[in-house]
Design a protein around this nucleic acid. Structure first.
Length: 188
DNA sequence: CTTAGGATCGCCT
DNA sequence: GGCGATCCTAAGC
């Protein structure tokens, strides 16, 4: 099984994969859009779920690269990560926001809003819009229902501190597509 | 515009 | 028993 998908080698540091993912298109069962915001988390990172080692919840992060790690946030929302592997350790990239492109009607139905900007502008929102749940945990990104499509041209990136964490707040591992109005919060 | 609080699950100390 | 890689709503300025 290859670790290369959409021209990206997932057997690489999470902060590199996080940048390469910006601009690629993610579909789940034909529903999705362009990735415009990501965050990287790795094994040496106190803010990461894998920092303290494998557990029932984070096991997928220590599994195969180019697979999904889905966890429940605040007991309510689902969040989707792409598993990377650095030096044999677990790491992941949190998918934080998409620019909606395909399956808009299904997204509107699942999200309960007509406003394009509110469909996928956050990790919990995009999982709801794409129908991602625990069922998708540890699934290969190379096979249905997942589909990852390489970007056609270069992407201009912006970076900043990650959102919603209380540790390692100085690490600038939040990445976005410059100028996109579909990010969860503006970059400054 | 900003801030505060509630929902609610699983892991951690 | 505490605390999140969140989101929504309501209230305050």
């Amino acid at each position: 099984m290859t670790t290369v998908l959409a021209g990206i080698d997932f057997n690489a540091p999470a902060h590199e994969v996080a940048q390469l993912l910006i601009g690629t298109v993610l579909l789940v069962d034909g529903v999705g859009g362009r990735i415009v915001e990501t965050e990287a988390y790795d094994r040496a990172d106190p803010a990461s779920h894998c920092f303290t080692g494998p557990s029932e919840r984070n096991g997928a992060m220590f599994g195969l690269p180019a697979h999904a790690y889905v966890y429940r946030s605040y007991g309510i929302h689902w969040c989707l990560n792409f598993v990377c592997r650095e030096e044999g350790h677990g790491a992941g990239v949190l998918i934080r926001a998409l620019e909606p492109l395909a399956g808009l009607d299904r997204m509107r139905e699942r999200r309960g809003t007509d406003q394009l900007r509110l469909l996928c502008s956050g990790p919990g929102k995009l999982c709801q819009a794409l129908g991602v749940s625990r069922l998708n945990n540890a699934m290969a990104l190379a096979a249905p229902p997942f589909e990852l499509i390489a970007r056609t041209g270069p992407a201009e990136l912006v970076a900043g501190p990650r959102i919603g964490i209380s540790k390692a707040m100085e690490v600038p591992w939040r990445f976005g597509l410059a100028g996109s109005r579909f990010v969860s919060r503006p970059f400054r």
